[in-house]
Design a protein around this nucleic acid. Structure first.
Lengths: 203, 203
DNA sequence: GCCTTAACTTGACAGCGTCAAGTTAGTATT
DNA sequence: AATACTAACTTGACGCTGTCAAGTTAAGGC
């Protein structure tokens, strides 16, 4: 890039990208304003021209993460649109893979580090879009008799809670080895989802 | 207590208690070794006589939290032992109330701040006991035909994931107002659990 | 009564978030 | 084109943090 100029030109995005890099490499505790600034090649106070405080940067990184999650889920939905049962499983797996690929990003997105997400409308929009996607898929699964009829928002919340709770517990190492020895994650996820379906899930 | 003596006498527990107080009052970020030491009336380095580092203190607080959670769940189980269906709902509510009463403690326990819980056997034991409790209750619910037959560990994991995921999303503010307007938390939890039961849950 | 040693204090260091004040350079105005 | 304005960035400082080294206290075993 151009380090010669006094003005960076695209510092805001560079800071977010640098933050994502740090998250990929280390822990969320290593994600500091000063490290992000250093990585972007600017002084330790430069971020304050673009972010009010540490939390604002974290919210921006989080928002990008939610965008990426929505995109991934949507791609999965498109790919398996013809088969709602398979799509249900694949969407769950996409969600889980998204979390496991970059656990620190997922942790930043969901572990309450960003206190008041109402201050960051991007976050709210992205999460609502994601929930709407899950709900639509739940309705499609209802229509083919895979999931029981009823309020689709409650059903969607059940699915999201089930998958989200599983991946949280999994990443925390809370899931006993007895279960993990049953096979790969996919098999466990199918077994979990089978608890809410009306008929067996065929793969 | 006695602040007159040079030796505190019960500093280790005092530090954990002080940490819990800070968690009750503020956020998990306000939980620092120095603040905990100040609250216990000792110097800023005193904690190092009892805890190897910051993470060790956090793990100790977390372990006490898991003990408390297990105790609460067990009390609930005893109280509703005669009615497995009601017990299932009440155990879920106890779990959720435990989280909502002191969100920062719950966050500390589950948000991955304690990296390597294998270093802290107390944590592992407490979580395994908790899971065993849930599994036993799941088996009891299977026996009365409330939950479908099958591997009880997968069933228990489903229940735990469902409830844990819900409370995580709820505390994060991710659950849409449309759902929250459906009524109090208890009603929503019953609706969620009803997704996995074979027959309606009677209250 | 002495000695060992665990428990605690003091002091220091680097890294952190944040703010104030100064500097640069791009943009708009005339 | 010269000037003024202003956003972007730097420098320096403050108090906070975790952590370690060295010194101090006092409790327990001999």
């Amino acid at each position: 890039m151009r380090k010669k100029t006094y003005h960076h030109g695209d510092l805001k995005n560079a800071l977010v990208t640098a933050g994502e890099e740090i998250l990929n490499e280390g822990s969320v505790e290593a994600l500091s304003l000063r490290q992000v600034a250093k990585r972007a090649g600017v002084s330790h106070s430069a971020p304050y021209a673009h972010f009010a405080d540490r939390e604002a940067l974290f919210a921006a990184i989080s928002a990008v993460g939610f965008e990426a999650l929505y995109t991934r889920l949507n791609e999965t939905l498109q790919a398996f649109q013809g088969d709602p049962a398979k799509a249900l499983v694949e969407i769950a797996l996409t969600y889980i893979n998204f979390a496991l690929e970059r656990p620190m990003r997922f942790q930043l997105m969901f572990s309450g580090i960003v206190k008041d997400e109402n201050k960051y409308p991007d976050l709210v929009i992205a999460t609502h879009r994601t929930f709407a996607l899950i709900e639509n898929q739940a309705i499609a699964a209802q229509d083919i008799g895979l999931l029981r009829k009823g309020e689709s928002d409650i059903l969607a919340l059940s699915l999201w809670s089930l998958v989200h709770g599983f991946v949280c517990l999994y990443m925390e190492g809370q899931i006993s080895t007895g279960i993990l020895n049953k096979g790969e994650v996919k098999k466990i996820v199918v077994a979990l989802l089978s608890q809410v379906t009306l008929k067996p899930i065929s793969l």
